[in-house]
Design a protein around this nucleic acid. Structure first.
Length: 460
RNA sequence: GCUCCAGUGGUGUAGUCCGGCCAAUCAUGCGGGCCUUUCGAGCCCGCGACUCGGGUUCAAAUCCCGGCUGGAGCACCA
């Protein structure tokens, strides 16, 4: 089987489905998986993408047996293209596109169709030498086919834009409806899983298999995956990055795999979801809910817990002594160690506290709110016993000691920044670690600066 | 417009090929409960679907016809 992206950017969720499905089934049946980079349109090639795609696949846990780059195989395409002309199944067409389109719409062949093999080979050589403009090679199909796009569709075109890899070595490039069947056959594909947007292409490509007398692989088409939210169009992403609208290919607003990685989404979660969605032809809506649930399953057991207060408000507590708390880093796992919270009169909270009400500072004690002055809340120590808080239906709130509070910025999926403080021991969290800010959600530690830690929000 | 395809709970999925064991699977979500000093996790209970109409048949989610809805393609892109 194969995964055949166009190297115009890194992989996104849409590619992930194709890659995962092909990987899943090739493993299931002990087959091989080829990565075929389809770079036969010089205009749409982004040189960095070749490596980005390999990195993304590796991250996804997809094992590639072999990498094939189409721009390395130009001579092969020329060879088979020439054969088709020699067999009289293809011809060089110099009609202008509008004229051809009009003829095609009426099911009428153009004059080029019957020029004869000799003349066609002559023109073909001229094409390859760069002597011609506005010329294509067409496959003879059925000029009255009920789908006009199938009537003598083009298989080679002239493109003089330099290719990032081969520069100006070639000026004639195969169209995918030619390179795909040639490669699928030569590379020994038995099964191909692709989106249903290729159904018509499969019909076109069948002509090539038939003309060469090749056995056609099993082409299976799955439905469209509708993904709400992130930007997926490679060209839009690229333009946005160049404009400075996005921070890069891993901006949290984008649907690239590297953006998901940065947010703390595990490749296993993506893999699982994609295999679950499967290959049916009905269109499906991508469920973020299910992705997050799968991801939570993976990360929850390892994620250390920390207190984090967003939009911090300062609270001064009267009548309580300095004390030190040791809390577990994870409620169910002793092996993840403890963290220390030092209470010393001044704390931050996130909630709006109401005067006269009782609150329970989590793991600490109960307080009652006295007054609010100049944005600072004054509270009194009430009692230690948790039962009293229960009896009084006191809300249990998170708190952060003002001393040593870690200034923290969480960037959410809309690239919006949430500023707050995390407890002092959050400093021990490593870059790339996924932690849970209790009640806030799971975040991935992205960057640690001297005065601030930056995290990306994964999900609740 | 033309050609082709698909429709199972809020979402994803099993079952559709080869009709009965399907008053429909699993997950997620939602509601409730237990536990818990996270509104997390776990455990328990519950909610919720075969697009509609006709036909064939002893029997239809499954087969046939039609409607409706959704989608794909109709490039010198992939």
């Amino acid at each position: 089987m194969r995964f055949a992206p166009n190297p115009s950017g890194p992989l996104h969720l849409g590619h992930a489905r194709a890659a995962v499905l092909n990987d899943y089934f090739s493993k299931k049946y002990n087959g091989k998986l080829i990565l075929r980079l389809e770079d036969t349109d010089p205009k749409r090639v982004l040189p960095e993408a070749y490596d980005m795609i390999k990195e993304d696949l590796e991250w996804l846990g997809i094992k590639i047996d072999n990498v094939v780059i189409q721009s390395d195989r130009m001579d092969t395409y020329y060879e088979y293209g020439r054969k088709l002309i020699e067999m009289g199944h293809a011809y060089v067409c110099q009609c202008n596109p509008e004229k051809f389109r009009e003829l095609r719409a009426n099911g009428i062949a153009c004059q080029c169709r019957d020029l004869g093999v000799e003349r066609n080979l002559e023109l073909w050589e001229k094409m390859l030498n760069g002597e011609l403009e506005n010329t294509v090679v067409r496959l003879k199909t059925d000029i009255k086919h009920k789908n006009p796009s199938i009537r003598d569709f083009p298989i080679f075109r002239i493109e003089k834009t330099p290719h990032p890899r081969t520069e100006d070595k070639y000026c004639v490039y195969p169209l995918m409806n030619f390179s795909v069947p040639v490669d699928d056959h030569l590379l020994g594909m038995t099964h191909v899983l692709r989106g249903k947007d290729h159904i018509v292409n499969t019909e076109k490509q069948k002509y090539i298999f038939d003309y060469f007398g090749w056995k056609m692989p099993e082409y299976i088409h799955y439905g469209i995956l509708k993904i709400e939210g992130p930007v997926l169009s490679t060209s839009k992403m690229h333009a946005g990055i160049l404009e400075g609208k996005y921070r890069g290919w891993d901006d949290p607003r984008l649907g690239t795999l590297r953006a998901l990685k940065r947010r703390g989404i595990k490749p296993e979660a993506i893999y699982k979801l994609m295999t679950e969605i499967g290959i049916k032809q009905a269109d499906v809506k991508f469920s973020w809910e299910n992705l997050y649930a799968a991801n939570k399953d993976i990360i929850d057991k390892d994620a250390r817990r920390f207190f984090f207060v967003e939009n911090p408000k300062k609270v001064v507590i009267e009548g309580a002594k300095h004390r030190v708390l040791n809390l577990r880093a994870h409620p169910d796992r002793e092996d993840l160690g403890t963290r220390e919270l030092i209470f010393d009169r001044n704390i931050y909270v996130s909630d709006d506290l109401k005067i006269g009400k009782m609150y329970r500072l989590m793991e600490l004690f109960n307080i009652t709110i006295d007054k609010i002055e100049n944005g600072t809340i004054y509270a009194k120590y009430h009692s230690d016993d948790f039962k009293i808080a229960r009896q009084n239906k006191a809300k249990i709130i998170h708190w952060i000691p003002v001393i040593d509070a870690v200034k923290t910025k969480v960037i959410d999926t809309n690239a919006k920044e949430h500023i707050g403080f995390a407890e002092k021991d959050f400093r021990i969290a490593n870059i790339d670690e996924i932690v849970q800010f209790e009640r806030f959600g799971f975040v991935r530690v992205d960057e640690k600066k001297d005065d601030e830690v930056i995290c990306y929000f994964a999900h609740k």
